[in-house]
Amino acid sequence: MEELVEKLKKEIIEQLNLEEIEPDDIDPATPLFDEGLGLDSIDALELIVLLEKEYGQKIEDPKKGKEILYSVNTIAEFIRKNS
């Protein structure tokens, strides 16, 4: 799980062009949106693309998107459960 979290951090930085952020700057439990990395709605869509492209995972229920994309930990948990 820890390995997946670290991999996700790197992928999020690359996919979202978080130029001045290092993987160690991301607390996997901190909310990605609003506070934390301050991501926006376009970033959320990019994360959905990332999940589909890299992990073949689709968020089937849009209502659960907010919960799944809450933090790096919740994304990792979603991938783990569905793999």
Binding site: L16, N17, I42, D43, L45, E46, V49, E52
Partner: peptide
């Protein structure tokens, strides 16, 4: 086919 919303905008 993985369209990027961040590019599209």
């Amino acid at each position: 086919y993985f369209p990027s919303p961040a590019l599209f905008v």
